[in-house]
C-alpha cells in the first residue's frame, strides 16, 4: 500500500491494517493495537521524515507468515536518529503521574510501538528508511509468506 504524505490519508492505512490483522485471527483489540502502531509510524514519516510536506510517498508493506506478522513502513525523507529505538533509551511512559509537568505530551508514538510490537528495527539504505514492526502470533498456523503491498 502507498499513500501520499498527507495526514488525511493515514486513516485509510490504519483501517486496512486493522482489517488485515483481523483476517490473521488476531482479536479486535490486538488488531486495533497493531493498526495504531502503523498509524504512529506513518504519522512519524509524514511529520518528521517529510516535515509535513505533501506529495511524498509513504509505503506500507504487510506480510503474514505462519508465526508472525511483519509490517514495514518506508519513506525517503529525513532519517530518524536510531537512538530513539535503542533499548537503553528511557521510555516516556516511565513517568510519575502525580507530577503534572512530567506527564508526556510528545514522544508517545514510538513508546506505543516499542511496547506493543515484539520486534522493532529501523534501517536506512540508499536514501530509503524502513521501519520494520514484527508481531509474533500465539497460535502458529501452516502457511507460507503472503506479502501484500
Amino acid at each position: 500500500m502507498a499513500i501520499t504524505s498527507d495526514l488525511r490519508n493515514v486513516p485509510l492505512i490504519g483501517q486496512a491494517i486493522q482489517r488485515l490483522c483481523s483476517l490473521a485471527a488476531l482479536s479486535d483489540i490486538e488488531s486495533h493495537q497493531i493498526a495504531l502502531c502503523v498509524v504512529e509510524a506513518v504519522n512519524n514519516a509524514i511529520v518528521h521524515a517529510y516535515d509535513r510536506e505533501a506529495q511524498h510517498e509513504v509505503q506500507v508493506i504487510f506480510a503474514q507468515y505462519s508465526d508472525r506478522l511483519i509490517v514495514q513502513i518506508c519513506d525517503a525523507g529525513h532519517a530518524m536518529d536510531p537512538k530513539h529505538l535503542a533499548p537503553q533509551t528511557a521510555s516516556p511512559l516511565d513517568f510519575d503521574p502525580c507530577c503534572l509537568e512530567r506527564i508526556p505530551e510528545r514522544g508517545l508514538g514510538l513508546a506505543i510501538i516499542r511496547t506493543t510490537m515484539d520486534e522493532v528495527a529501523y534501517t536506512t539504505s540508499h536514501g530509503k528508511n524502513i521501519l520494520t514492526l514484527t508481531r509474533f502470533l500465539k497460535s502458529c498456523q501452516p502457511g507460507s509468506a503472503r506479502p501484500e503491498e
Binding site: 486513516p11 490504519g14 486495533h32 495504531l36 498509524v39 504512529e40 504519522n43 503534572l100 509537568e101 506527564i103 508526556p104 505530551e105 510528545r106 508517545l108 508514538g109 513508546a111 506505543i112
Partner: peptide, 20 residues
C-alpha cells in the same frame, strides 16, 4: 473510536493547561 498519540497528547496538554 480511535485515538493516536497526538490526540492523547492534546488531552494531556489540556490537563496541563488547567495547571492543577
Amino acid at each position: 473510536e480511535f485515538i493516536d498519540s497526538s490526540g492523547l497528547g492534546a488531552i494531556v496538554s489540556s490537563l496541563k493547561r488547567m495547571g492543577g
